[in-house]
């Protein structure tokens, strides 16, 4: 137990060292604004990827409407800062909470559905959220809403760290195991005393909360938000992080979020090419490696396995 606590704090300290180094490079202008902006964008995308990973990868609930919660977080936080004059930090939290509440409202009825039906229902909910913003003049309708720039490397890094810590800790506990058991075999999970509805909704709410936070960061990084930013293609972008990384692998989701964000930054001028590559990659992965890059493994498993094999000299079954 002591060892586990230590590795946890070690990881946190390393994360802050990494943060400090980057911050130093930014403030000394060694990293130029283009790259620091890419870093912020990477943080936002990792938050989105990891929050969806909890829903799809861990709990096995196929949601393809994550952009709806992103939109809620973006609009609510923008209203907080632009219309109500609240501080940015408070706006972020408010965006997260409203998105989480929406997750609760959406989750309770739709999580009775399974597989493709759930997918379609979440897609429908995301579209409804988008159409609602499209029709509200208070937030600018189709023209969108002006937002000040407030997202910095510091805020996005802190939000990212919080997201990962919460989701990793949740996953590595009895609650996370309950969620995984639902993914693996819902009927058996139910028969083992797991309240499957409760955990599906909980995973959905936590996932939506962080998507909302990401929305706040997103809104305050781009000067303007419009309903068209939060359509099905945005949900698809987030989905591809999780699927490419490997359903069930948090490190996989993080790696593919970083990779694809960098790739799409370079392809910014060629949006069609980007979409062709994205969709082709997705289809190829599904046809030839449906478990994704990492399967359900984590990066840390590779270290663990190596150590274990060395000590035990191969694996043995107990008969």
């Amino acid at each position: 137990m002591l060892k586990k606590v230590n590795t946890f704090w070690l990881a946190i300290i390393l994360a802050f060292v990494f943060y400090g180094v980057i911050q130093l490079l930014i403030s000394t202008a060694i990293i130029n604004p283009f790259y620091s902006n890419t870093l912020i964008f990477i943080c936002i995308n990792i938050i989105l990827a990891v929050s969806l990973h909890l829903v799809i990868g861990i709990t096995g609930q196929f949601s393809i409407g994550h952009a709806g919660f992103l939109a809620l977080g973006a609009y609510i936080s923008a209203i907080m800062t632009m219309e109500l004059g609240m501080p940015f930090s408070l706006a972020l939290v408010a965006g997260g909470i409203v998105a989480a509440l929406a997750g609760l409202v959406v989750g309770i009825p739709s999580l009775r559905l399974r597989g493709d039906y759930l997918a379609i229902a979440t897609l429908g909910f995301a579209e409804i959220i988008r159409i609602i913003f499209l029709n509200i003049d208070y937030v600018g309708g189709a023209a969108g809403m002006q937002v000040t720039h407030a997202t910095t490397w510091t805020t996005s890094f802190l939000c990212l760290l919080l997201t990962i810590v919460v989701i990793v800790n949740f996953t590595n506990s009895r609650h996370g195991r309950a969620c995984i058991s639902i993914r693996e075999n819902e009927i058996a999970a139910d028969a083992m005393g797991i309240n499957t509805t409760y955990y599906k909704v909980t995973a959905f709410v936590i996932g939506s909360f962080f998507a909302g936070i990401a929305g706040g960061l997103y809104a305050h990084n781009f000067y303007i938000i419009q309903p068209v930013n939060f359509g099905f293609l945005k949900s698809f972008d987030i989905l591809i992080f999780v699927v490419l990384g490997g359903l069930g692998s948090l490190s996989g989701a993080v790696i593919s979020a970083i990779l694809l964000t960098v790739v799409s930054t370079f392809l910014q001028e060629l949006p069609e090419t980007r979409m062709i590559i994205y969709s082709l990659v997705l289809v190829m992965v599904m046809l030839y490696r449906p478990q994704g890059l990492m399967g359900t493994r984590e990066i840390t498993d590779y270290f663990g396995k190596w150590k274990w094999k060395r000590i035990k000299g191969g694996n043995q079954y107990g008969g």
Partner: peptide, 16 residues
């Protein structure tokens, strides 16, 4: 393969 893999492929082909 799983329904999910099939659904993702369908979405992918459609965007392609």
């Amino acid at each position: 393969s799983t329904r999910i893999a099939a659904l993702i492929t369908a979405i992918g082909v459609s965007l392609f």
